[in-house]
Every structure is written in C-alpha cells, then in structure tokens.
Amino acid sequence: MVGKLNYLHNRGVLDWVIQRTSAALLAIYTIGMIGFLIANPNLEFETWRNLFSSPLMRVFSLVTLLFLCGHMWVGMWTVITDYLTPLQLGSYAKPIQSLCQIGIISLIIFYAIWGTFVFWSI
C-alpha cells in the first residue's frame, strides 16, 4: 500500500506513516515476545538475559522503543487536538494544548532515555 511517498513532507502523511509502521513493528515485537514466553515456560533469568544481550535483540528492542515513542506522540497529539479545542475550552485551548504537549514530550523523552538505559544495561 505504501509506495514512493511523494507527499511525506506533509505532516499529516508523515504522522499517518509513523502510526501505521510503528503499529506493525509493535505487533511483530509483541508476537515475538509472546512466542518466546510460550517457548520458555520455565523462564529463568539467564535465558532472559541471553535473549536481550544479543546485539540483534538489543537493536530490535531499541528500534521498537523509538517507534513506540513516535506512536505515542502521534496518538497523544491527535487526542489533544481532538478534545482540547476552542469549542470546549474557548481561549484557554491553546495554552492548555501547549502545556499538555510539553508534558507528553517530556514524558516520552524520559521513557526513551530510561528504556535505552534498561536495554543497554542487561
């Protein structure tokens, strides 16, 4: 479905592509993890550690984390601009939207740094 992406410079198209590709990657990661847990019913710390200490898994996990952050941002930005509009909040809408966006960006940056630290420290 996704082709040459001639219109990717448009914010709406970019957001849409981020949301869809990240959703697909998150689904693959989740299914992979569920498969791993099913394949290892008596999971021990060593097995868990071995999985995440392989460079491939580390990179895959970090890329998934990055896509999760993108997914979160697009989703939350959409929710904010759907529900916190001048129709509901009048002239307070813009400052409240900005405040929420700053809060969400801070939280996403915190999650990204924390997640990277967790994956890299295994």
């Binding site: 219109y7 914010r11 709406g12 198209v13 957001d15």
Partner: peptide, 8 residues
C-alpha cells in the same frame, strides 16, 4: 490535503 486535519 496532506496536513494532519483535512483528511487524516
């Protein structure tokens, strides 16, 4: 139509 609101 490529902005985040018009279609998306």
């Amino acid at each position: 139509l490529g902005d985040p609101f018009s279609v998306f």
